[in-house]
Design a protein around this nucleic acid. Structure first.
Lengths: 172, 172
DNA sequence: CAATCTCCGACCACTTTGGTCTTGCTTCCA
DNA sequence: TGGAAGCAAGACCAAAGTGGTCGGAGATTG
């Protein structure tokens, strides 16, 4: 008997907040590009208010506002208060990695509960699988670090080899 | 007062249950190897009760029992009820991937909330970042699929190049 | 038969997540 | 000069997921 009615338990996923953050950054990157091409006054080039971004993607405005504040606090965005204010990228879109965004919003990511900030393990002596999993963790970190916000704009081109066959050289 | 001093929010991690499951499988793989070497009767070679495994790793026995049941239902373990019963690997340790274990326990893993089982996106038309993230998702899947339970036994040897420099060929 | 062990569902406490609301502060412009 | 537009920063809340426990039912062996 199959129970497909379950809500869905997708573990090992990033939160909706991180999703929203990535979408917002992508949007701002596009706006910056358009503003640069249009040659408009470089003052607020590409700056958009939280409300505008929220409406563009149908995201709860208040929630997105908090996410953007977090991103600004992390130094990924510049905020400008007041009329015609808003957020703009603090750096070039190519210099902001998906890893930075996710870490800023969701905190440090560790694939296993063993690995903490200091590398200590809750299960102290009895956990024997943390070394292989740490390699997986590092690989995912590298993977996300290699993807920039600028990469999110291109739909599906310019990716010569989506996957090669294994980042870790373990063969079975 | 049990105060859990865990301030950080480690997202993108697998659950403790998956950790326990991997540890249990590793343990059973070791037992199977020892039993095979000792040349004992191959009947219950390497079979151990849930209680034994739980004690070996200081895991709550009832919780581990449920995890092992899940693994048995997924076809990764063989269960044998009754006195001197227990669990044993259903296949060779080299033929059970970490991906199978995690999927069996935590369910299908999708890095973004966009990607569901049917590939549909909650944010229907307005989510524009799912294609790049799907590649990340596939890469992680491949990564975990390439690691077998047998690989967990070796501490940290025989891994020529822990990481090469990028599974996805995106350069920034 | 009795002890042992798996099986299975219900149940519970706690944490995290997603989201809202309120209040304040800054900037611009009519 | 006073709003209006916008960010900043809390508290707050409901729903869901996680980790863990309990107790009974059924199978297997001695």
């Amino acid at each position: 008997m199959r129970r497909n009615l379950r809500p869905h338990t997708p573990m090992l996923r990033l939160t909706k907040k991180a999703d929203y953050g990535l979408m917002a950054l992508k949007y701002l990157a596009e706006q910056a590009y358009l503003a640069e091409q249009a040659g408009s006054d470089a003052r607020n080039s590409g700056a958009r208010s939280a409300k505008d971004i929220a409406e563009a993607y149908h995201i709860p405005p208040q929630l997105l506002a908090k996410i953007l504040q977090t991103l600004a606090r992390a130094g990924l965005l510049l905020s400008h208060a007041g009329t015609n204010g808003g957020y703009a990228l603090a750096r070039a879109a190519a210099d902001i990695s998906a890893f930075e965004v996710i870490r800023a919003i969701d905190g440090p990511l560790f694939i296993t509960s063993c690995i903490t900030i200091h590398g200590t393990c809750d299960l102290a002596g009895h956990c024997t699988i943390k070394e292989p999993l740490r390699k997986v963790n590092d690989s995912i970190t590298d993977l996300l670090s290699g993807i920039s916000v600028a990469d999110l704009i291109e739909p599906a081109d310019q990716l010569p080899a989506p996957m090669a066959g294994g980042l870790i050289s373990i063969e079975r």
